[in-house]
Design a binder for these strands. Structure first.
Lengths: 197, 197
DNA sequence: TCTAGAATCTGGTCAATGTCTACTTTGGGA
DNA sequence: TCCCAAAGTAGACATTGACCAGATTCTAGA
């Protein structure tokens, strides 16, 4: 029809990028496969070659979200030299910043699915958890906790960070309050972690 | 047309009850105003007299969710006589049970809205927070923390509980792990709370 | 008791969407 | 070179949320 080539060549990536923007600016309800197709300059059926479902697109977004969040946390920690406490604060801070920047995406990442998360999302979430574990492991070497407790403690710290982020993104507390909560959480965590044994 | 009365008489409540069930059994995507109307035996336009929007229905569900969750927590705490630690565990346990029973509803309660939560939802959420504060106040009398810290500590404990619930409902950890995390969280919380000053 | 007006419900319409399907175009490897 | 799988087109369909005009019922006040 037009002079544009039959094959887009990059459709999957373009759809995902644009979907992320829509998610950020107008929320998940505004995310339409047909609109994404129009913006990409392809027919409304084209996305189906890359995402069988609207849900498959959402899963891909969630997966990318976990990967990006992990990247940002590692980046933040690597730029925060110092003791273990500083690393934890850098990680928590980065998590919260991600949440504030991409609230709808974070919702998607932890959304309840009727049949549980897809394999890809589950794997990506586990990689994030592995990142958190890596940070916590340094605390073991520093004598902050026993090696046998790291798994539980990592889960707990992750849950707390996620909970604080949820409070902020759902507007129950301000971003500033959220940052203070991250600080309090880590203070209490480090002070009380030895009590779990 | 039929012999049923023109006025349903109870439509709003019936819609909400049925919507809650659909939410529980088939998730938020399966929630359709028209289907609810059909099941209630009214025309597809009837719900509009009670909910201007699909979103208004979701808000009403979230509001009821906060109220019910608060009720269940108060109930659980009142049946758990003993010291402050026992109260906290009872509250956290009740929260997690609610989350496991109504995962999609909890998602809705903490969902990111583009324009923030509605006034009604915000108020209901504050009432839940007031319930949590009431439980924490007992800890002040018992000398567990300073009165000036209660607000921050209540937020922190609420966030942690919410985060653990999110980990469970999104299937990152099992319910049993979630229960253990609630326990660990409260142990650490009580051991470390004095460190925040 | 009567009556206006508000609340509720009906039934039709419309645009938009997700999904499915048959078909066409294209590119890369046997 | 040819063939096939991948990618994209275009049409169809059912469903949905939203909006509207009008019918019905309820209720409060004269």
């Amino acid at each position: 029809m037009s002079d544009r080539p039959f094959h887009h060549g990059n459709l999957r990536a373009v759809l995902l990028d644009r979907a992320e923007t829509v998610l950020r600016e107008r929320g998940i309800d505004a995310l339409s496969l047909r609109e994404l197709a129009r913006e990409a300059g392809v027919s409304h059926g084209a996305p189906r070659s890359h995402f069988i479902d609207r849900n498959a697109l959402l899963d891909a977004l969630a997966e990318r979200g976990f990967i990006r969040l992990g990247d940002e946390i590692r980046e933040a920690v690597s730029h925060a030299p110092g003791d273990h406490a500083r690393s934890l604060r850098a990680a928590g801070s980065a998590y919260l910043r991600f949440a504030v920047r991409e609230p709808a995406l974070l919702d998607l990442m932890f959304a309840t699915k009727v049949d549980g998360p897809s394999e890809a999302v589950r794997t990506a979430a586990e990689r994030l958890f592995a990142t958190m574990t890596g940070i916590m492991d340094v605390g073991v070497e520093a004598g902050a906790y026993d090696a046998g407790d790291v798994s539980r403690l990592t889960l707990l710290l992750s849950a707390t960070t996620q909970g604080i982020s949820a409070l902020v993104t759902s507007r129950r507390v301000t971003t500033a309050q959220g940052e203070a909560l991250i600080d309090d959480a880590i203070t209490i965590f480090l002070a009380g972690a030895s009590a779990v044994r």
